[in-house]
Design a binder for these strands. Structure first.
Length: 213
DNA sequence: TTATAGATTGCCT
DNA sequence: GGCAATCTATAAT
């Protein structure tokens, strides 16, 4: 699909995100994350994400209750929660569940499909190094030029938003569930979702092979 | 007020 | 495989 028509697709509706993050995370695989930069469009197919829950999930930022930092997770569904981590990286989430209930999905990896040259440039890479452009949450945010200052609290569900999630008719993908990456608490919960066999997922062990169960 | 861990990445040996 | 980079939230003095 050419990029001009990608940009014209309607964003996924609010109801898509007004559900359990585990269902949202699973169903986001195969959808397209869009960023509009003036006239340019950056886009990638979602191949990896993770669900984060509320009080039951010790690894979630929402576990200890609502703060200024994580307020978006407690708000209405379909909004961007962007946080800064390790002094170096931004990570992008979408809020889930109704207003007042905490939950979200972390975007962990994209297969670049439009605006690839610009995404690569944001990462100081060549376009042919496609697997390195957005294979990890920090890389993904850098490729899509996402920062907390610019994007935290932004609505994904608005045709005027420069941050959107759309369905381009790609169809069903084969989903694998694994434990989440980089956490120590609640590390056994199988809340990571990946497209089976995708070479664009994060982790050195995952290039071109089936992810570890 | 000070210490430490963190939903990561990239460079070093 | 080890570890530095480098900001922020939270726990410990």
């Amino acid at each position: 699909m050419p990029r001009s028509s990608l940009a014209q697709l309607a964003p996924l509706p609010r109801s898509f995100f007004n559900r359990d993050p585990r269902m949202v995370g699973r169903e986001l695989l195969g959808k397209v994350l869009l960023r509009r930069e003036g006239r340019a469009i950056l886009a990638g197919r979602i191949v990896e994400c993770e669900a984060y829950l509320g009080a039951d999930d010790a690894a979630a930022h929402a576990a200890a209750g609502k703060t200024a930092r994580n307020a978006v997770l407690f708000g209405p569904p379909g909004f961007a929660y962007v946080y800064f981590i390790y002094g170096n990286h931004y990570c992008l989430n979408v809020s889930c569940l109704p207003d007042g209930e905490a939950g979200g999905v972390l975007f962990r990896a994209l297969e670049p499909i439009a605006g690839v040259e610009r995404m690569a440039a944001n990462r100081q890479l060549e376009p042919r190094e496609a697997r390195l452009i957005a294979s990890g949450p920090g890389r993904l945010a850098e490729a899509m030029a996402i920062t907390r200052e610019r994007d935290n609290g932004k609505d994904f569900v608005s045709s005027r938003s420069d941050l959107r999630i759309v369905d381009d008719g790609f169809g069903a993908v084969e989903v694998r569930e694994t434990p989440r990456i980089g956490i120590t608490k609640s590390a056994d919960l199988p809340l990571r979702y990946v497209v089976a066999g995708s070479p664009f997922v994060s982790g050195k062990r995952n290039f071109g092979i089936t992810p570890i169960p």
